[in-house]
Amino acid sequence: MPTVKTIEESVSLPLVLGPSAERDIPLPAAVVFHIVHSKLWHLIAWSDPASNSCGLWLKGMAIALPRDRLATLSIEVMRPAKGGGWVALEARLAARPVPVTLMQCVTFQEAALAWLNEHRQRLALAFDCVVTDNDYGCDY
């Protein structure tokens, strides 16, 4: 049975989907049904064993991952010093050395970090995995 959750309903989400987000990817029927009955700006998360997929949908874009390879989610932070820093939610997949950026704020914003920390439990439940932290300190 798929898990589909609305993670955020606010129009002022301080993050955007990561660079691998696409418009026309096939989504499980339960996700499509949930999206049709949601607002365009709602952030939707899903995990579906039948299609072996999980991911995020926002504003007509989606990022889908193979569910059986999802190891952890991670809140990644680099605070500004000389540069602008950044905040991201990344997925670490088994047998893939490079993580997938699910959500990001390309410059550090306290609101983006606060949002991820406030929604940590909802994201963990939606993806059925642990959410860890990586704080890289200040950029240089």
Rank of each mutant, 00 (worst) to 15 (best):
M1K: 13
M1G: 10
V4Q: 03
V4H: 03
V4T: 01
E8N: 14
S10K: 07
S10M: 01
V11P: 02
V11Q: 12
L13A: 07
L13I: 00
P14S: 11
L15N: 03
A21E: 03
R23E: 10
D24G: 08
I25F: 03
P26Y: 07
L27E: 00
P28I: 05
P28L: 10
A30N: 08
A30Q: 07
V32R: 07
V32W: 04
V32M: 12
V32L: 06
V32Q: 05
F33S: 07
H34K: 02
H37Y: 09
S38W: 06
S38I: 03
L40I: 13
W41R: 04
L43R: 09
L43G: 03
I44L: 02
A50L: 15
S53P: 02
S53T: 13
C54A: 08
L56D: 04
W57T: 08
W57P: 00
W57D: 00
L58Q: 02
K59F: 05
A64K: 00
P66G: 04
P66R: 06
R67I: 05
D68F: 08
D68G: 05
D68W: 01
L70M: 08
A71D: 10
T72F: 10
L73G: 00
L73S: 00
S74Q: 12
I75G: 02
V77Y: 04
V77D: 04
M78E: 07
R79E: 10
R79A: 03
P80D: 05
P80V: 11
A81Y: 14
A81R: 13
A81E: 13
K82S: 14
G84T: 14
G85L: 05
V87R: 08
R96G: 03
R96E: 12
V98M: 10
P99L: 13
V100S: 12
T101V: 12
M103T: 06
Q104L: 10
C105Q: 12
V106Y: 12
F108R: 07
F108M: 00
E110N: 14
E110Q: 15
L113E: 09
L113Y: 05
L116Q: 08
Q121M: 15
L125N: 02
A126Q: 09
A126C: 11
F127L: 12
D128R: 11
D128E: 15
C129G: 10
V130R: 14
T132N: 07
T132F: 06
D133P: 06
D133M: 10
N134G: 15
N134I: 12
D135N: 15
C138K: 09
C138M: 08
Y140I: 15
